[in-house]
Design a protein around this nucleic acid. Structure first.
Lengths: 191, 191
DNA sequence: GTCTATAAACAGATAGAC
DNA sequence: GTCTATCTGTTTATAGAC
């Protein structure tokens, strides 16, 4: 909402630092004190803008999600599917400020036990939006051309293991074992 | 090491509960007090067996890793690749005591910022061992049959997104962007 | 809006009795 | 080995002055 130009407000600076801290340390890994030292205001000022830590994390996930999903929607759907996927991957890389962060919603999925239902739903929405966009691009790339894995067995194995790890996060986030089970079903040696 | 039969010792009960707590809550999400209430001994007794929390988490990851990797090695390599992968997936499911846990090493990868180098290396070893085993099975399933994804676009998209999330964990764990980059390279529309 | 001051609970860890 | 008691520092959060 606020004006994106000009000097960021204290509130915006708090939120931006909170996003980076969550991506780096997780929900239980940063404190109002950490934020106060980064932003240069006292912890009581942070409570003025975000009364509880749950309020803060909800606004953080919403801002992060809005930013990523908007950039995703801006990828030109007229481009070849491969190119769209490449831009999608770049987009994720650029969200990581350096090598010490992971996706905020991936981190919050790991910390889901501590978060209120409102945050769980926001993280679920982020997952679903990404998956829907990817499904659209994959289907668009169809055109009689089969989808296949084009890499070494080592690389395919790393991808498969990453998919298992990610599916465990999603399985708990959505409270359904189907998220894990379908990985096995999807990955088949062709007969 | 210890006798696996008979009544578990206090030390074993502490470690077993610690493993479940880490899988459910993460490294910063449980305390010696939580453990003391679950096991029924005082926190000072836990410090007797595990002087620091870093000692405890190192032993937890080693025991978890040993258990999972041993079960993995016991999968009969003479079985068809598909069957081996199915048993591998079951193995992971059984490590999760209910729907509220994720893989201990996936969780610790998210919490890696707080962990000493010894634990980072142990988690890396777990990742590498899983990936090597999967690469072996995938390559074994070759036999002129191509590997392909056999599912709906929706399911493929969920798998791809999970792989991205997992690759961010691995990328930070191994301190190399290659873990993220190769996901894009692997997943191609065939031409 | 931002501050000082403080509350109440909790963290990991240690000393020393038994 | 297990306990009681305690230390030191941290956490989220609030009251109230300016």
């Amino acid at each position: 909402m606020g004006t994106p130009t000009g000097t960021p407000t204290v509130r915006e600076r708090i939120l931006d630092h909170a996003i980076i801290l969550i991506m780096e340390r997780g929900y239980n890994g940063f404190s109002y004190r950490d934020l106060s030292e980064l932003v240069g205001v006292k912890t009581s000022s942070i409570h003025y803008y975000f009364p509880s830590k749950e309020d803060l994390v909800l606004e953080a996930v919403n801002e992060y999600s809005d930013n990523v999903l908007n950039s995703m929607q801006e990828i030109d759907a007229a481009l070849p599917a491969d190119t769209q996927l490449a831009k999608y991957a770049e987009l994720f890389d650029s969200a990581l400020s350096d090598g010490n962060q992971i996706c905020l919603c991936g981190m919050l999925a790991a910390d889901i036990r501590w978060l209120p239902e409102s945050v769980r739903l926001a993280v679920q929405t982020f997952f679903t939006a990404n998956e829907s966009w990817l499904a659209k691009v994959l289907a668009q790339g169809l055109d009689e051309r089969p989808l296949a894995v084009n890499c070494t067995w080592d690389s395919a194995a790393r991808m498969l293991f990453a998919a298992y790890q990610g599916s465990m996060l999603a399985s708990r986030l959505f409270r359904t074992a189907a998220r894990r089970k379908e990985i096995e079903a999807a990955w088949k040696i062709m007969r």
